[in-house]
């Protein structure tokens, strides 16, 4: 188990930087995590995806895959990859402070 500090708060993460305890996450931490992942600015569309990730995690206990995101987040797959070029589900999960979504499709 490792820790990182966002907004002056120490949080637990796994070795890839995903939150292991999503309750430690605060919205204000998202821009800082995003910058660390190479995203300079979080637009309204980014936030739509991030909030959807949190919502899905709260409902189902796991984050959605890219396919699910494309079908249900209101952001189509092409745009998801423009918003989060290095893997939308993975990156959005990290920024949203939830564990890495598992699933092959």
């Amino acid at each position: 188990m490792q820790t990182r500090t966002y907004m002056g708060t120490v949080v637990s993460v796994d070795d890839q930087g995903f939150f292991t305890d999503p309750t430690q996450w605060r919205e204000a931490m998202a821009p800082e995590i995003a910058r660390q992942e190479g995203l300079a600015d979080l637009t309204e569309r980014h936030w739509q995806v991030i909030k959807f990730m949190r919502h899905e995690y709260d409902e189902k206990g796991t984050g959605p895959t890219v396919r699910v995101l494309g079908k249900t987040s209101g952001v189509p797959i092409k745009e998801l990859y423009e918003l989060f070029p290095r893997g939308p589900a993975k990156l959005a999960a990290k920024i949203a402070g939830i564990p890495k979504p598992r699933g092959c499709i």
């Binding site: 890219v66 990859y81 893997g87 589900a89 993975k90 092959c104 499709i105």
Partner: peptide, 8 residues
């Protein structure tokens, strides 16, 4: 292929 893209 899809899984590769999902991983970036």
């Amino acid at each position: 292929a899809n899984g590769a893209r999902a991983e970036g």
